[in-house]
Amino acid sequence: MPGKSFLHKLNPLTKVVWSLAVITLAFVYQQPLPILSLWASVLAVALIGKVLREILPAIRGLIIFAAIFFLFQVFLIDEGQVVFTLVPGTGIGRITDVGLKACTMLALRMLAMTSTIPVLLATTPPKDMIVAFVEKLKVPYVYALMLVTSLRFIPTLQEELSLVIQAQRARAYDLEGRNIIKRFLALIPLALPLLLMSVQRARTMAISMETRAFGAGPRTSLHTSTFQLLDIGVISSCLLLTAVLAVVSLH
Protein backbone atom coordinates (compact mmCIF):
# COMPACT_ATOMS: atom_id res chain seq x y z
CA MET A 1 0.00 0.00 0.00
CA PRO A 2 2.01 2.94 -1.29
CA GLY A 3 1.21 6.42 0.04
CA LYS A 4 -2.22 7.17 -1.32
CA SER A 5 -3.15 9.84 1.20
CA PHE A 6 -1.65 11.83 4.03
CA LEU A 7 -2.70 9.04 6.40
CA HIS A 8 -0.42 6.63 4.56
CA LYS A 9 2.48 9.04 4.77
CA LEU A 10 2.25 9.54 8.54
CA ASN A 11 4.62 7.73 10.83
CA PRO A 12 2.91 4.63 12.27
CA LEU A 13 3.48 5.96 15.80
CA THR A 14 1.62 9.15 14.95
CA LYS A 15 -1.38 7.03 14.08
CA VAL A 16 -0.95 5.11 17.33
CA VAL A 17 -0.98 8.43 19.22
CA TRP A 18 -4.20 9.36 17.43
CA SER A 19 -5.65 5.98 18.36
CA LEU A 20 -4.70 6.50 22.03
CA ALA A 21 -6.22 9.97 21.98
CA VAL A 22 -9.50 8.53 20.73
CA ILE A 23 -9.40 5.87 23.46
CA THR A 24 -8.75 8.50 26.14
CA LEU A 25 -11.64 10.65 24.98
CA ALA A 26 -13.92 7.62 24.79
CA PHE A 27 -13.30 7.10 28.51
CA VAL A 28 -13.60 10.76 29.41
CA TYR A 29 -17.01 11.26 27.81
CA GLN A 30 -19.98 10.08 29.85
CA GLN A 31 -22.75 10.97 27.39
CA PRO A 32 -23.81 8.98 24.29
CA LEU A 33 -23.85 11.97 21.92
CA PRO A 34 -20.19 13.08 22.32
CA ILE A 35 -19.06 9.47 21.94
CA LEU A 36 -21.16 9.12 18.83
CA SER A 37 -19.47 12.20 17.38
CA LEU A 38 -16.09 10.80 18.42
CA TRP A 39 -16.87 7.66 16.45
CA ALA A 40 -18.03 9.80 13.52
CA SER A 41 -14.71 11.64 13.66
CA VAL A 42 -12.84 8.32 13.38
CA LEU A 43 -14.88 7.42 10.31
CA ALA A 44 -14.28 10.91 8.92
CA VAL A 45 -10.53 10.38 9.26
CA ALA A 46 -10.92 7.09 7.38
CA LEU A 47 -12.87 8.91 4.68
CA ILE A 48 -10.20 11.58 4.27
CA GLY A 49 -7.56 8.86 4.20
CA LYS A 50 -9.51 7.16 1.35
CA VAL A 51 -9.78 3.87 3.23
CA LEU A 52 -13.39 4.04 4.44
CA ARG A 53 -14.64 1.64 1.77
CA GLU A 54 -11.77 -0.73 2.47
CA ILE A 55 -12.42 -0.90 6.23
CA LEU A 56 -16.21 -1.03 5.97
CA PRO A 57 -16.41 -4.84 6.40
CA ALA A 58 -14.31 -4.59 9.58
CA ILE A 59 -16.53 -1.77 10.91
CA ARG A 60 -19.60 -3.87 10.15
CA GLY A 61 -18.09 -6.73 12.16
CA LEU A 62 -17.38 -4.39 15.06
CA ILE A 63 -20.96 -3.11 14.99
CA ILE A 64 -22.29 -6.67 15.20
CA PHE A 65 -19.92 -7.36 18.06
CA ALA A 66 -21.04 -4.20 19.86
CA ALA A 67 -24.68 -5.17 19.35
CA ILE A 68 -24.08 -8.60 20.91
CA PHE A 69 -22.25 -6.89 23.78
CA PHE A 70 -25.23 -4.57 24.22
CA LEU A 71 -27.75 -7.42 24.27
CA PHE A 72 -25.75 -9.38 26.83
CA GLN A 73 -25.48 -6.43 29.19
CA VAL A 74 -28.81 -4.71 28.86
CA PHE A 75 -30.84 -7.34 30.73
CA LEU A 76 -28.46 -7.43 33.68
CA ILE A 77 -29.03 -3.92 35.04
CA ASP A 78 -31.91 -3.60 37.54
CA GLU A 79 -31.74 0.07 38.53
CA GLY A 80 -34.06 2.74 37.17
CA GLN A 81 -37.45 2.75 35.51
CA VAL A 82 -38.54 -0.32 33.60
CA VAL A 83 -39.18 0.63 29.98
CA PHE A 84 -39.65 -2.78 28.41
CA THR A 85 -40.18 -6.41 29.48
CA LEU A 86 -39.53 -9.37 27.21
CA VAL A 87 -42.20 -11.51 28.89
CA PRO A 88 -44.93 -9.09 30.11
CA GLY A 89 -46.12 -9.54 33.70
CA THR A 90 -42.91 -11.20 34.89
CA GLY A 91 -39.42 -9.96 35.70
CA ILE A 92 -37.90 -11.85 32.81
CA GLY A 93 -36.07 -9.80 30.19
CA ARG A 94 -36.59 -6.46 31.90
CA ILE A 95 -34.91 -3.41 30.42
CA THR A 96 -34.53 -0.20 32.45
CA ASP A 97 -33.78 3.33 31.29
CA VAL A 98 -30.52 3.37 33.24
CA GLY A 99 -29.51 0.06 31.72
CA LEU A 100 -30.41 1.22 28.24
CA LYS A 101 -28.28 4.34 28.55
CA ALA A 102 -25.34 2.59 30.20
CA CYS A 103 -25.27 -0.14 27.60
CA THR A 104 -25.59 2.26 24.68
CA MET A 105 -22.62 4.10 26.16
CA LEU A 106 -20.66 0.90 26.51
CA ALA A 107 -21.37 -0.25 22.98
CA LEU A 108 -20.60 3.14 21.45
CA ARG A 109 -17.45 3.51 23.52
CA MET A 110 -16.25 0.14 22.35
CA LEU A 111 -17.05 1.02 18.74
CA ALA A 112 -15.23 4.35 18.88
CA MET A 113 -12.18 2.77 20.50
CA THR A 114 -11.88 -0.24 18.24
CA SER A 115 -12.69 1.53 14.97
CA THR A 116 -9.28 3.16 14.93
CA ILE A 117 -7.57 -0.23 14.60
CA PRO A 118 -8.78 -1.05 11.06
CA VAL A 119 -7.86 2.50 9.99
CA LEU A 120 -4.40 1.99 11.42
CA LEU A 121 -3.94 -1.38 9.73
CA ALA A 122 -5.30 -0.25 6.37
CA THR A 123 -2.89 2.66 6.11
CA THR A 124 0.28 1.15 7.56
CA PRO A 125 2.42 -1.54 5.95
CA PRO A 126 3.30 -4.10 8.68
CA LYS A 127 7.00 -3.64 7.98
CA ASP A 128 6.83 0.10 8.75
CA MET A 129 5.00 -0.68 11.94
CA ILE A 130 7.78 -3.00 13.11
CA VAL A 131 10.49 -0.50 12.22
CA ALA A 132 8.69 2.29 14.07
CA PHE A 133 8.15 0.21 17.18
CA VAL A 134 11.68 -1.13 17.24
CA GLU A 135 13.48 2.11 16.47
CA LYS A 136 11.39 4.71 18.25
CA LEU A 137 9.88 2.78 21.14
CA LYS A 138 12.81 0.36 21.60
CA VAL A 139 10.52 -2.65 21.53
CA PRO A 140 12.58 -5.85 21.10
CA TYR A 141 12.41 -6.85 17.44
CA VAL A 142 11.14 -10.38 18.16
CA TYR A 143 8.06 -9.11 20.00
CA ALA A 144 7.25 -6.57 17.31
CA LEU A 145 7.61 -9.28 14.69
CA MET A 146 5.37 -11.66 16.62
CA LEU A 147 2.63 -9.08 16.87
CA VAL A 148 2.76 -8.14 13.23
CA THR A 149 3.01 -11.74 12.05
CA SER A 150 -0.05 -12.78 14.00
CA LEU A 151 -2.02 -9.91 12.49
CA ARG A 152 -0.71 -10.85 9.07
CA PHE A 153 -1.96 -14.43 9.48
CA ILE A 154 -5.59 -13.55 10.14
CA PRO A 155 -6.61 -13.37 6.46
CA THR A 156 -4.65 -16.55 5.71
CA LEU A 157 -6.44 -18.36 8.50
CA GLN A 158 -9.80 -17.10 7.27
CA GLU A 159 -9.05 -18.48 3.82
CA GLU A 160 -7.92 -21.76 5.29
CA LEU A 161 -11.00 -22.02 7.50
CA SER A 162 -13.28 -21.64 4.50
CA LEU A 163 -11.40 -24.48 2.76
CA VAL A 164 -11.75 -26.67 5.85
CA ILE A 165 -15.48 -25.92 6.05
CA GLN A 166 -15.88 -26.85 2.41
CA ALA A 167 -13.89 -30.06 2.81
CA GLN A 168 -16.02 -31.17 5.76
CA ARG A 169 -19.29 -30.15 4.15
CA ALA A 170 -18.32 -32.25 1.15
CA ARG A 171 -18.32 -35.18 3.57
CA ALA A 172 -21.95 -34.49 4.41
CA TYR A 173 -21.01 -32.60 7.53
CA ASP A 174 -23.91 -30.40 8.62
CA LEU A 175 -23.31 -27.21 10.55
CA GLU A 176 -26.87 -26.10 11.08
CA GLY A 177 -29.70 -26.99 13.38
CA ARG A 178 -28.34 -28.51 16.58
CA ASN A 179 -28.51 -27.59 20.24
CA ILE A 180 -25.79 -25.43 21.79
CA ILE A 181 -23.62 -28.21 23.22
CA LYS A 182 -23.75 -30.19 20.00
CA ARG A 183 -23.00 -27.08 18.00
CA PHE A 184 -19.99 -26.43 20.18
CA LEU A 185 -18.74 -30.00 19.70
CA ALA A 186 -19.46 -29.63 16.00
CA LEU A 187 -16.66 -27.06 15.82
CA ILE A 188 -14.05 -29.78 16.39
CA PRO A 189 -13.96 -31.02 12.77
CA LEU A 190 -13.28 -27.41 11.73
CA ALA A 191 -11.00 -26.25 14.52
CA LEU A 192 -8.70 -29.26 14.61
CA PRO A 193 -7.48 -29.28 10.99
CA LEU A 194 -7.03 -25.51 11.24
CA LEU A 195 -5.03 -25.76 14.44
CA LEU A 196 -2.86 -28.59 13.16
CA MET A 197 -2.13 -26.74 9.94
CA SER A 198 -1.25 -23.57 11.85
CA VAL A 199 1.22 -25.43 14.04
CA GLN A 200 2.71 -26.93 10.91
CA ARG A 201 2.93 -23.52 9.30
CA ALA A 202 4.56 -21.96 12.35
CA ARG A 203 7.18 -24.69 12.33
CA THR A 204 7.88 -24.22 8.62
CA MET A 205 8.13 -20.48 9.13
CA ALA A 206 10.56 -20.86 12.02
CA ILE A 207 12.78 -23.10 9.91
CA SER A 208 12.68 -20.81 6.90
CA MET A 209 13.56 -17.82 9.09
CA GLU A 210 16.44 -19.62 10.71
CA THR A 211 17.85 -20.68 7.37
CA ARG A 212 17.96 -16.99 6.52
CA ALA A 213 19.99 -16.28 9.64
CA PHE A 214 17.20 -14.85 11.78
CA GLY A 215 18.58 -13.85 15.18
CA ALA A 216 22.20 -14.11 14.06
CA GLY A 217 23.18 -10.59 15.01
CA PRO A 218 22.10 -6.96 15.15
CA ARG A 219 19.59 -6.14 12.46
CA THR A 220 19.62 -3.19 10.14
CA SER A 221 16.64 -2.01 8.15
CA LEU A 222 16.43 -0.58 4.65
CA HIS A 223 14.00 2.16 5.57
CA THR A 224 14.34 3.94 8.85
CA SER A 225 11.47 5.42 10.75
CA THR A 226 11.40 9.20 10.74
CA PHE A 227 9.08 11.86 12.16
CA GLN A 228 8.28 14.58 9.70
CA LEU A 229 6.85 18.03 10.30
CA LEU A 230 3.40 16.64 9.48
CA ASP A 231 3.81 13.96 12.17
CA ILE A 232 4.80 16.47 14.81
CA GLY A 233 1.88 18.67 13.80
CA VAL A 234 -0.62 15.81 13.96
CA ILE A 235 0.71 14.52 17.28
CA SER A 236 0.66 17.92 18.95
CA SER A 237 -2.82 18.74 17.67
CA CYS A 238 -4.06 15.32 18.83
CA LEU A 239 -2.65 15.89 22.32
CA LEU A 240 -3.89 19.47 22.50
CA LEU A 241 -7.37 18.62 21.26
CA THR A 242 -7.64 15.70 23.65
CA ALA A 243 -6.55 17.83 26.59
CA VAL A 244 -8.97 20.62 25.73
CA LEU A 245 -11.91 18.29 25.14
CA ALA A 246 -11.16 16.37 28.32
CA VAL A 247 -11.00 19.51 30.45
CA VAL A 248 -14.20 20.89 28.89
CA SER A 249 -16.14 17.70 29.43
CA LEU A 250 -14.93 17.19 33.00
CA HIS A 251 -16.14 20.62 34.02
Partner: peptide, 13 residues
Protein backbone atom coordinates in the same frame (compact mmCIF):
# COMPACT_ATOMS: atom_id res chain seq x y z
CA UNK B 1 -20.87 -36.37 -5.52
CA UNK B 2 -17.65 -37.22 -3.70
CA UNK B 3 -15.19 -34.35 -3.64
CA UNK B 4 -11.47 -34.79 -3.12
CA UNK B 5 -9.68 -31.53 -2.30
CA UNK B 6 -6.12 -30.55 -3.20
CA UNK B 7 -4.85 -30.69 0.35
CA UNK B 8 -5.85 -33.67 2.51
CA UNK B 9 -4.81 -31.77 5.65
CA UNK B 10 -7.88 -29.56 5.30
CA UNK B 11 -10.12 -32.43 6.30
CA UNK B 12 -8.12 -34.90 8.38
CA UNK B 13 -8.79 -34.40 12.09
Amino acid sequence: VGFLFQNPDHQIF
